[in-house]
Write a protein that binds this DNA or RNA. Structure first.
Lengths: 160, 160
DNA sequence: TATTGTTATACTCTATAACTATA
DNA sequence: TATAGTTATAGAGTATAACAATA
């Protein structure tokens, strides 16, 4: 069977293929997958997917926000965001109110129930965060945040 | 119009909503989006999407690999990977050969044409990389890679 | 005429489950 | 029986375009 590696059990047990070590997007994706893996399971137990959670987290910090801005900041296209919000609305998690100053605009906000759901999930998220901080150290965690922020800001700034 | 902010131009021109500053997954996603934005356009001009590029990059470094392992390492589910590979195969970018030692297994590899396509795109990728390195500095770039690698490895290792 | 939200459409990926064939 | 690949299916996101109401 030579280098065909026939009969090897599972890829995970061997030293896995680890491609494009020098690809920053891939390194970011890989890290994100590693971080999210645990939490995604928790989300599903609460009937939420990743996008819905992103929207909830965003709403948690701003009280209310227009749909377009919300969509942009959580990296979901407007049509998807509208559908997701409609879905969350039907479950009583978010509310939608029309701006009185400009009837075109709609504001989205978490309902009391949405906030409660968030509070139930947040500890799991915090736990994950604490676990990672413990694994790599608090100083390095800060450093990582700082570097990510710099890359993001510099790229977004130097793009016009 | 008060805090309704009626008549404001585009969200981007104002100080945008910047939610969950302390969410690591979001920071990773945001950075990834910033990094990929420029390159995604290039990909599309070559008729490739992100997943197809990920697969090509992975294949570029290993000669050939089984479908399951490939799918796992680029974070694409097997059914999606199979369809994508089938698509790439129909465009002559990858080839598929059956393992002689174990007829169940199939090996995927880049064709000469696939490799050529990669070589055409790689400079754009390198350019982006150089640009980022210049923006945040070579040392910090190294540091960022290192931190991402540690987070990933620690989480994956400490998970069993 | 420009903008916000909305709907429509086609395509793709996600997520599961079942199926085939090899082992 | 277990495994690698494959197909099937339902759901959701991506990406565009067009449309409505409002400004």
């Amino acid at each position: 069977m030579a280098d065909d590696a026939g009969g090897r059990p599972a890829a995970a047990q061997r030293q896995m293929m680890r491609p494009f070590e020098r690809s920053l997007p891939m390194a970011l994706l890989r890290a994100r997958e590693a971080v999210m893996r645990g939490f995604r399971q928790q989300l599903r137990e609460y009937g939420l997917n990743e996008q819905e959670w992103r929207i909830m987290r965003a709403l948690m910090e701003v009280d209310r926000v227009e749909i377009g801005e919300l969509a942009e900041c959580v990296f979901i296209l407007k049509p998807s965001a509208i559908r997701t919000i409609k879905n969350l609305e039907s479950r009583g998690i978010v509310s939608r109110t029309r701006s009185s100053a400009d009837q075109r605009r709609a504001f989205i906000a978490l309902t009391a129930r949405g906030r409660k759901l968030f509070e139930e999930l947040a500890p799991h998220s915090e736990e994950e965060y604490a676990r990672i901080t413990k694994l790599i150290g608090s100083a390095d965690m800060q450093e990582l945040y700082e570097l990510l922020r710099r890359v993001t800001d510099q790229l977004n700034g130097s793009k016009a």
